[in-house]
Design a binder for these strands. Sequence first.
DNA 1: TTTATTTATTTAACATTGTTCATTTTATTT
DNA 2: AAATAAAATGAACAATGTTAAATAAATAAA
Lengths: 210, 210
Amino acid sequence: MFIYLKAKINGTMVSNKELQEKRMRGYFIAAASEILKGEGLRAVNVRSVSERAGYSFATLYNYFKDLNELIFICVNDFLEECEQMAEEQSQHLQPGKERLKMRMKALINYFTQYQGIFELCYIEKMNNAGSKQATSKMVYELTDRTADADITYMLNKKLLTDEEAEILKINLRHSLPGMMLFYLNRMQPVDYKDYMKIVNIQLDAALRNN
Amino acid sequence: MFIYLKAKINGTMVSNKELQEKRMRGYFIAAASEILKGEGLRAVNVRSVSERAGYSFATLYNYFKDLNELIFICVNDFLEECEQMAEEQSQHLQPGKERLKMRMKALINYFTQYQGIFELCYIEKMNNAGSKQATSKMVYELTDRTADADITYMLNKKLLTDEEAEILKINLRHSLPGMMLFYLNRMQPVDYKDYMKIVNIQLDAALRNN
DNA sequence: TTTATTTATTTAACATTGTTCATTTTATTT
DNA sequence: AAATAAAATGAACAATGTTAAATAAATAAA
């Protein structure tokens, strides 16, 4: 008989089957995220993720096309998480240059803390072309999204011309990944404070604070 | 008997044995470089490199500790090559801002042409800690080295203060890899001209040309 | 409640890649 | 030409991604 029991997730009605499937996917996503944050990208593989999720490695393939699909989902989650973090850490500030700076630093802080996530988002060869497009667009535009409110504010207040705003966005879009790359590939264990000094200089240059 | 025949390589005397070993290494290095430039990083593996060099995969291990060592050598070669390219392409210009800009563009041109090389230099997880330090230092400082002559010139001519020079170097060090990353991870096949327009804006911002 | 059928999970197996080692081939010395 | 050293190789192993057949669990039908 075609009776589906319904359960509520995120405000939408779904069948039991969908609910269960969503939960299963959640277990694998959580497992992959944990490993990524803890041990980094290299430690993520079909077997390690499945084991942590409490299933056989083959079960993963019942819920994801392949390992790549799972990893892409993690990327999107991480992006959301770090955007939210930037928002929270700058809540106490008024819109404008200082808040923008704080938000950019929050992004850098997030990715330097979770290096595996940076590698994943900006670097990983994204083997599967499928999800690549949408995801890499999301990654690029991370700085744009995070800077948007403050740049709009400054534009409205005539603190910035349209052209200056465009240059600022381009600058942030390029220099943030550059700075993270620098930290990631560092040779000697750079002091985080020293690193942040350079970050400050770079951000001040982008914001024309000198 | 301990008689070694000598042969001249790069102006230094070496034994036959050393010469032969150097040649053998050269075959593998050339093979790896070709594959890197042609098919990219993903196509490089012990078997493909060895086959192109004309030997069994096991022979590679008689001349290199592992695949990583071979790849690191390639990185160093590529860095030299692209520095030289920047030099050549700007020979006709006088020292100063314009030449610096041309050299930066030459770097970008090199890495966007050979994407596998960019991935390799800036991204690849450099699994083996051994050569990593020295090499990643070389990679970072690529923009510094390439910009050095022009920045020194501008300092001498008082076209730049010490502080401005420092900021410029930091800016180039971060934004060039950022721009390359952008091109590499691009979603839709970006028109190279459009890309170069953005590169120009970024470089002009770094050079305070606006 | 028992049986049949569908669904979910897992074990076995294969392909690819990096690496090691014993064996074979080649070069050198006596 | 025989003995020895050096170089090159193929067989084999481990790790990883993936597929597909076999098993277990859940559900529907009787």
